[in-house]
Design a protein around this nucleic acid. Structure first.
Lengths: 386, 386
DNA sequence: TATTAGGTTAGTTAAGTTTACTTACTAATT
DNA sequence: AATTAGTAAGTAAACTTAACTAACCTAATA
C-alpha cells in the first residue's frame, strides 16, 4: 500500500482529472470540480500543471448556459502528446505499430517471424520502428515506451519469456534486450493477456470490468480481467482453458497432457480438428478447410467439428460458471467460423450454466496485437502522467 | 477512485501503522517509521491518535539495543477494544458468536434453524447475542457490527438474500431486518464467501492472495479470492463449481441442470452419492455412510464414490487450470473423507493441470461461520479505524 | 429598440487549514 | 562518547473557503 503524503494526493487528483477528461472528451474546469468534489482552485491549479506538461489543451470557449454566466473553456486530452510502440511477436508474423495515447494506430508494419528469428529479429523490429517514426515525423522523445506480446508464458515482472514454443524461447530476457536497443521502458506479456487489455481499453470490453477473452487457434488460450485488473494467476498461469477436461472418459483414454498441451486443445484446437479430419479423409485438411466442409454439409466434417465444438462450448460454459463474467470475447482465428461457434456456445451455456453471458467476437483484426501491446504499456507504466 | 486530500492521507497512514502493529504484534514507533518510510514525528502523532482512540496500547518498554540508546516503547494492537458478531444461518443450525478484533471467538451459541425459521428466527438471534454480551460483560457500544453468512445467492451491496432454498428465502432483505433489531452496521454474504475471507484472515490462507475454497456437502459450492480481494462475479454468481461439466456424455444423457442444481453436484454432491448408493443397495445410505463403506472396501460403494470423486477432482483441476491459485481449501462436510478426496484430487491434477497447487483442508470446525462472518464485517466495514 | 440592473456561471486570488517533513532537541542507554 | 527512541518547533505542500473578477443572459425600463 502506498503511503500518503502531499505529492501522492496531488498525483491521485491529477490522475482523476485526466481520467475525467479522457472519458468525457471535452469538459470544463467547473464540471471537473463538481464531478470530483474538488474545489475550483485545486482543479484550476492541477489543470494548469497538466496544460503546462502538454497532457491537456484548451480547445476554445463553449456556449454559456441559458441562465447566463461566463463562457466555459473546454479542455481536451492531448492524445498526440506522446506515442506508444505496440509489438506482437507471433509464431508466423511480427506485427508492430505506433499508437497515440487514445489507442489510434498511426502507423503499422509487419514481417515474417521465422526468417529473422534466430538471426536479427530485434534489429528488424528496430528498423521498422525507425521507419514508422520517420513516416510520422516524430522524435525519439515523443515515444513513451513499448508494449510487447508473446505467444507463451511470460514473467511480466522480470520481463522474461519463460516459455514460448512457437519462438523456441526459454527464459529469454526480452525486456532487457529491447531496452538495450530502444532505451525506453518496455513491458512484455502473453499475447492473449494483451488482447484482454486492448479489448478493455478500446474494444468490446469498454466499461466492463469482468471479461474473458478466449483465443482459439492452433491451441486454445484465454486471458481474464477481474475487477478491472488483468489477472495473471499465482505463477503467470491463469486462464489455461486449453487444459480443461470436459469429457472424463475420452480424457482417460487419451492421457493427453504433456508439457504445453492440454485436453481441450487436444480435442477442440485447430490442429486437433485438422488432424482428425485429415486422418478420416486421408488428405491434408486445415482447420479452416474443415469449417468450410462443415458449412458445405460434409458428413465427416460435421461429425468431427461438432464433437470439437461441443467440447469447446462446454469449456467456455465451465469458465462462465466459475467466473460469472460480464462478457466473453472470442478471438484468434475464429473470424470465419464465429457464428457457428457462437451458436454452439450459447446453446451449451443455456443448458449447463447457472447464468448466461454475452459472447461476442473480438473487435480488432490485424491491429489487435498493436493495440494490445500499447494497452499493456498503458496498464503497467506507473509513471504515466507524472 | 478516492480523491486525495489531507484527511485521506492521514487515514491511509493510520491504516498502514495499524496494519504494521497487527502483523508484527509488538513494534516501536521508530520501527514503524523505518518500515513505512514515514518521519518519526508523523508516526508519533498518528500513534498518539490511535492510543487516544484505544486502537493501540503501550505495553511497556523493551530492552535497548546493544549499541546503546534509549529504551523503545512497544506498541500492541488492542484486540479487546471492540467486538464483532459473526452469524452463520445454515439450513440445519444457526451458529453465532462474538469475536475480538483478532478473530478470537470469545463466546458462541447454536440453535436449530428450522423450528424458528418462519417464526422468530431473528428474535432468537437477538436473544443469543444478548446472552453472549452478558457473559462477556460487554456493552452494546463495544460491538462494532455484524457479519452474516447465508447458504444462497446474496446481493451484498443491498444486503438482500436473492435466493436461499434451504431457508426458503427469496429477495429477503435481511440486512434491513437485522439493522432494525440491532442498530449496528450489518453485512450479509454467501456462507462460502465468508469462509474464504475467514481462511484468508485467520486460517490456511493467511499471507496468500489467490485462494479457492471449495465447500463439499449436499451440494458443491466455492468462493474465490483474487489478488487479496473476494471475487463475487458480475451477478454475485462466481464460483459455481457445482455447475461444471466434467463428463460430456453423461451430461448429455442426464440433462441435469435446473434452477439451483448443476451437473457436478448431480454426480458428485453428497446427496448424489447417497441417492445412488441407496438405490444400488436398496437401503437408506447417507453420504457419510457411503464413505465408511468405501473405506471398508464395499465394492458398490467404491464404484460409486470413485466415479463421484473422479468428477469432483476433475472439477477442482479445471478450477486450478483456469485460476492458477496459490491454495485450494476443501471445506464443508469433508472432515472424515478429506484424505480420500485429497489423494484423488492430487492424482487428477497431476494428470491434467498445467501447474500444481497445494490442497488443504479448512482450518476451522464449528467456528468457521463465526470467524467467516466476522471476517466479512472486517472486509466490508469502511469506517473501521476511523 | 436600445439600455441597464439583477442574476448566473466560470474561473482566479488570497487567506487559512491540515498534514507531513526537516531540523534540532531531550531522554535513556551501552 | 556514541547510539537509539522519541518530542518540539518551524517549514513546505497540498487542499479548502470566501471573496473576487470576468463574461454572459434575462427582462424590465426608457
Amino acid at each position: 500500500m502506498q503511503k500518503g503524503n502531499a505529492a501522492y494526493i496531488k498525483t491521485v487528483n491529477k490522475r482523476l482529472i485526466l481520467q475525467c477528461v479522457i472519458e468525457e472528451d471535452a469538459v470544463t474546469r467547473a464540471a471537473i470540480a463538481k464531478k470530483l468534489s474538488l474545489s475550483k482552485p485545486t482543479v484550476s491549479a492541477l489543470v494548469s500543471d497538466l496544460i503546462r506538461d502538454k497532457w491537456l489543451v484548451e480547445t476554445g470557449s463553449m456556449a454559456a448556459s441559458k441562465e447566463g454566466g461566463r463562457k466555459p473553456m473546454s479542455l481536451t486530452f492531448n492524445a498526440e502528446r506522446s506515442y506508444i510502440v505496440g509489438i506482437d511477436i507471433g509464431g508466423t508474423n511480427v506485427v508492430l505499430g505506433i499508437t497515440d495515447l487514445n489507442g489510434n494506430v498511426c502507423a503499422h508494419r509487419e514481417f515474417p517471424t521465422q526468417q529473422h528469428l534466430d538471426f536479427n529479429l530485434l534489429e528488424e523490429i528496430k528498423r521498422n520502428v525507425e521507419s514508422m517514426k520517420d513516416q510520422l515525423r516524430i522524435k525519439h522523445s515523443d515515444i513513451l515506451g513499448i508494449g510487447t506480446g508473446i505467444p507463451g508464458v511470460t514473467n511480466i515482472d522480470k520481463g522474461v519469456v519463460i516459455e514460448a514454443p512457437a519462438l523456441r524461447w526459454n527464459n529469454y530476457p526480452i525486456r532487457e534486450r529491447l531496452t538495450e536497443i530502444f532505451h525506453l521502458p518496455v513491458f512484455v506479456d502473453n499475447d492473449v493477456n494483451n488482447n484482454v487489455l486492448g479489448e478493455h481499453w478500446k474494444g468490446a470490453g469498454k466499461e466492463k470490468d469482468n471479461i474473458v477473452y478466449i483465443a482459439i487457434g492452433t491451441g486454445i488460450g484465454s486471458g481474464l480481467m477481474i475487477n478491472g485488473h488483468l489477472y495473471r494467476g499465482s505463477n503467470y498461469g491463469a486462464g489455461e482453458i486449453g487444459y480443461l477436461v470436459t469429457d472424463k472418459n475420452v480424457a482417460q483414454k487419451y492421457h493427453p497432457v504433456h508439457r504445453g498441451y492440454g485436453f481441450l486443445e487436444s480435442v477442440a484446437g485447430g490442429s486437433a480438428i485438422s488432424m482428425q479430419l485429415s486422418e478420416r479423409l486421408q488428405d491434408n485438411i486445415t482447420s479452416k478447410e474443415a469449417f468450410a466442409l462443415y458449412a458445405d454439409g460434409n458428413k465427416d466434417a460435421i461429425e468431427i467439428v461438432d464433437e470439437a465444438l461441443e467440447n469447446l462450448a462446454i469449456g467456455i460454459t465451465n469458465y462462465v460458471s466459475l467466473f460469472d463474467p460480464e462478457l466473453v470475447i472470442l478471438g484468434g482465428g475464429v473470424s470465419g467460423s464465429f457464428s457457428i461457434i457462437h451458436k454452439k456456445v450459447m446453446d451449451v451455456m443455456k443448458r449447463y450454466a447457472p447464468q448466461q453471458c454475452e459472447v461476442v467476437r473480438s473487435s480488432f483484426g490485424e491491429e489487435a496485437g498493436i493495440i494490445g501491446g500499447a494497452a499493456l504499456f498503458f496498464n503497467e507504466y506507473e509513471d504515466l502522467f507524472n
